[in-house]
Amino acid sequence: MKSTEEHPFAFFDGYFKNEINKDLKEFYIRITEELYYNNVDEIDKTNHTIKVRNTLNDEINSKHITYSFHGSIKSKLNKETEQTKKLIELGFQKRFSDIKKVNAYADFLRIKISNSFNQNICKEFIFLTPIMNS
C-alpha cells in the first residue's frame, strides 16, 4: 500500500503485516538455494544474516561473504522512510495555523508510530529500531 498525506504510515503498516515476512523468505531462498546452494556456512535467524563461502566473487579478497536481510531491503525502507517524513511535514504544514490541530496531529503520529513499529516487529527485526528512531 502506498503512503499518502492522510495515511503517512500506510506503506509500513502493510509491509510489516504482510510483506516483510515474504521478503525474508525470498531472501533466504535466494541466498541458500539459488546462489550458494552447497556453500552456506552459517544462518543466523536472530540477525537474519547468512554467511557463505566466497565462490562467486573473485574481486572480494575473503573466504566468506555475509549477506543480511537488512541490506537486501535497506534501500526500500530508506526510500519509504524519506517519503513518510515528507508526508508528515506536509501534514504539519496544513495544520500549522491551529495549535489544537498540530497537537492532535502529533498525538495521532505518536500512536501510528507505536502501532506501526510494534514491539514484536522490532524484536524480530532488530535493525528496525534505529529506523523507527530517525
Rank of each mutant, 00 (worst) to 15 (best):
K86Q: 14
E33Q: 14
I88L: 09
T46H: 13
H7I: 06
C122W: 02
I73A: 01
T81E: 10
E6I: 06
D107E: 15
F11W: 04
E33K: 13
F127P: 00
Q119L: 11
F117D: 00
E42V: 11
F12P: 01
T55I: 13
N120Q: 15
E34W: 04
H7R: 13
I126A: 07
H64G: 04
A106V: 07
D44N: 12
I65Q: 02
G71R: 03
Y67L: 05
K22D: 15
F117M: 05
K100V: 11
L90K: 15
S97Y: 10
E124W: 02
K25Y: 08
E42W: 09
K85F: 14
V52K: 00
I43P: 05
E80I: 07
D13C: 10
E59C: 08
E5Y: 07
I126E: 08
Y105G: 08
T55Y: 03
S62K: 04
H70Q: 13
L56V: 02
F27L: 03
L90F: 12
R30N: 14
D44A: 06
E82Q: 13
Q93A: 14
I31E: 00
E19A: 08
D41F: 09
K45W: 07
F16C: 02
K100L: 10
I29F: 14
S75I: 10
T129K: 04
A104F: 11
I31Q: 00
Y105F: 15
S134H: 06
E19M: 08
Y15N: 01
H64I: 05
T81N: 07
T66V: 15
L90S: 15
S62N: 07
T55S: 04
F27G: 01
K51P: 00
Q83M: 15
V52M: 03
Y15F: 11
K94S: 13
N78I: 08
L77S: 05
K76T: 15
T81V: 11
K101P: 09
A10W: 07
K45V: 11
E6P: 03
K86A: 14
G14S: 14
N39E: 12
T55Q: 07
N103I: 08
F127C: 01
N18W: 07
S68I: 03
K74W: 04
E5V: 13
Q83E: 11
N103H: 11
R53G: 02
N78M: 10
T129V: 06
A10N: 09
K63V: 11
N39G: 01
C122A: 03
T81P: 04
E19D: 14
D58E: 11
K101E: 15
D44K: 02
K100D: 12
I111A: 11
G14A: 13
F127D: 00
L56M: 09
G91P: 07
D107Q: 15
K112F: 05
A106T: 12
F27Y: 05
Y15D: 00
